[in-house]
Design a protein around this nucleic acid. Structure first.
Lengths: 332, 332
DNA sequence: CTGAAAGCGCTTACAG
DNA sequence: CTGAAAGCGCTTACAG
């Protein structure tokens, strides 16, 4: 920085102002300084800057997955589910114009400690927390830490934190309406894990809208293999099902395979509606009719809200709810 | 820190020594200081520390994917392929004992610039670069930046950088041997993208070992859907194939579906061998026989080598090659 | 083994 | 609009 200042014939203060885009710098001087920066190849030291500004200009995207007793680690689940790619894309896109870096931190409860330490040390200015399972203690821990944060879904216990969510029950209702409008009368559903609010909400929303019908359901786990197994069981217990709502596209992909393996045509014998509208919907055969959750937009909104909290620490928490829409394709 | 020093009745220098585990501190004093730290809830400021140590105690895991002209973004590919979860798990595991954080940075060429800026600013002490495609300019850019780095595969152009790889050709040979030992004579292969060295190596290795046989092949793209489409084409062009080597488990999963859709039994009519031994191998029906690539161990080794480079900047680059093994299951 | 002091590389009131 | 100077919170020779 001294070199730049000398080369440009100004003080370090002025160099600093140019770098940080202060408007109060004379246009000619600004130019001279910028040339000097280019010539010297000067790059500001982020540690020094952070030390005085108390800003790191990066935020964490903490992806918190439940502990599951299977072989597949949480990392396998994360790097296998298109949902997280969409979240990352949405958050990155919203943050980039502000020149804020996104630090992706996958975790399950085995290293909550590690994650909290990272946050406490001030590596990031705030956290986008993707957490869905009921027992997850991370939202509360993060909240108690006092660092600006936005959560990806309504917290299960009431904590005063901002969150962004989709209207889960409305989504389930759209699925039910679609199946009914197709004339289906023997409906069933493969739900998400019931310890995840979105899992429970979609199930309840579906049932609530179908009051009067008997709606068999099986709990899935939001994985492809889980959806396949669930569909197999469901169909063996209720062979006459003609309409199926599967609470995630990934599970629907597996379910579709099972349904067809068991000799049913889709949608002729069984109409299937998924949830998410992720890339998995397009991997399905037939292409999946599904309830679209605007995940990228939701993640971008999370980022915007977080930025607002970082800018004005006193800000009250707020929640934003997005509306799902039905995307009709071939499966139902 | 001043608070802690005061509470413990020592200087800040001593507090610093205790925190950094200097051995030269009196045991009693160390205890007093630690208690004071606990009581005050003191957390060191990482920016201040980095400013003087010139270390961030974190390294980047840059996942560089090729630009592809399809709908699915690189983020979708990354968060859909179990390979990256394995890499992350391996690297995290190796870094944790050293108290080094891993910053995951997914990228394609559209934001190389952004990534390079991040690295240049000194946010991390080194970079683990997952890059496989031939045209990727990132390995060279990173190398020219001069930051300690380890690449996940032999670079296509010769740059003096450390890398960790698996013996691709040997892996392909194991697959060929397995199919031959099963008495299969009409072999074919679905390769990875041929602009990716591992894709080309596996194809060439397979062919080289089968010199004399005519070995039809189709280029895939390391995705499930791509494997399915490739298998369909392959079988329509060569209906008598009885042994198939698919260059990744994810593609094999799709290929298996296609093969069976077309009325062939696996392994009776067509024996199938994959490559990776990722979780996708266990999602296959029948369970996939495959060539195991010890990805977690390889990523851990990358981390160890990187740490060595960070510790001694003058260190010469070195490459480590792992041996693949055949994992026999049901498909071939 | 411990402390006083310098210094890491920035930003930002403050004065002009 | 610009510069001199203080200060952000640590670590680490150096001296004792």
């Amino acid at each position: 920085m001294d070199q730049v200042a000398e080369a440009a014939g100004v003080s370090r203060a002025t160099v600093s102002r140019v770098i940080n885009g202060a408007t109060s710098v004379d246009a000619k001087i600004r130019e001279v300084v910028q040339r000097a920066i280019a010539e010297t190849g000067y790059v500001p030291n982020v540690a020094a800057r952070s030390l005085v500004t108390r800003r790191s200009n990066s935020v964490a995207l903490v992806i918190s997955e439940p502990d599951r007793p299977d072989n597949h680690s949480f990392l396998n689940r994360i790097f296998t589910d298109p949902y997280f790619g969409r979240v990352t894309a949405g958050a990155t896109g919203a943050l980039r114009p502000h020149d804020i870096h996104l630090v992706v931190i996958p975790t399950d409860s085995t290293d909550h400690h590690q994650v909290m330490r990272y946050l406490r040390q001030g590596h990031v200015d705030g956290v986008l927390l993707i957490s869905s399972h009921e027992q997850d203690t991370l939202p509360r821990q993060v909240h108690e830490l006092g660092i600006p944060a936005v959560v990806s879904a309504r917290p299960t216990s009431p904590i005063a934190v901002s969150y962004v969510d989709v209207d889960q029950r409305l989504g389930a209702r759209l699925a039910a309406d679609r199946l009914l409008s197709l004339g289906r009368t023997r409906l069933a559903t493969i739900s998400g894990p019931l310890d995840i609010p979105s899992g429970l909400d979609r199930l309840e929303g579906f049932r609530a809208h179908l009051r009067g019908h008997d709606v068999p359901s099986i709990e899935g786990d939001f994985t492809r293999a889980g959806g396949e197994a669930a569909a197999r069981r469901l169909l063996s217990q209720h062979p006459d099902i003609d309409g199926l709502f599967v609470a995630s596209d990934l599970m629907a992909e597996g379910a579709l395979r099972a349904v067809q393996d068991l000799g049913r045509r889709v949608p002729e014998d069984v109409a299937v509606v998924g949830f998410d509208d992720s890339s998995a919907a397009l991997d399905c055969r037939p292409l999946l009719t599904t309830v679209r959750q605007p995940v990228e937009e939701m993640a971008a909104e999370m980022a915007e809200v977080l930025l607002a909290h970082i800018a004005s620490p006193g800000r009250l928490p707020r929640s934003v709810t997005f509306h799902p829409t039905l995307v009709v394709r071939d499966s139902g």
